[in-house]
Amino acid sequence: MRKISEGAEAVIYAARMLGRNVIVKERVAKGYRIKELDEQLRRQRTKTEAKIQSTLYEKGVRVPGVILVGKYFVVMERVQGKTLNRMAGVGKAHDRRSMGMAMAEAGRVLGTIHRLGVSHGDFTTANIMQDRSGRLWVIDFGLAAFTNSEEEMALDVLLMKRSVDSGMYERFIKSYKLGFGGKASAVLGRLGEIEKRGRYQTRTLDSA
């Protein structure tokens, strides 16, 4: 087993299991919070992640298949690729075309996930991977939930809205509507309300 990444919550190891390339995502103890809270969060998120990821996998959404679940770790298929926020030259002109295509695909996938009654909870470019053949994989379901709440879904859209510029967001939202179908407009209406709540005004990368 080889450590390949250290996220905010988890340490990721690469391994081989039953002839397949897998990763082990282990939620490590956080010394800054009290033990009871720490263990409760790690247990609950590990369980949530495995459960929701498996459900989505069975329904045909492109997420890494879950192979094994422990108290604080999940073993899942390894995606051979990079997260979108780490793609070479993000934001540079010659990459905008491929980024635009990725955004359109990301919108469609989020729409599908929402249609299936799941919110992601941290839907940013850091939690979408692109493999070598250009396909997108959504990862990191620890903050996800089974829900039909328009608010939760609107927050997923809002997180993405804030992490890309307005052109990219437009492409994202167009295919989000296609992926979700009819109910997308209710979510987008809710998004408008959240933004109007006053305290919260949307910041995009192109607003000063």
Binding site: A8, E9, L37, N85, A126
Partner: peptide, 18 residues
């Protein structure tokens, strides 16, 4: 207090790594 501060700390940690 523990819950509120842990939330702040976690969000900060995620931003730090990103």
């Amino acid at each position: 207090q523990e819950t509120a501060f842990s939330m702040l700390c976690e969000a900060t940690e995620r931003a730090l790594l990103l």
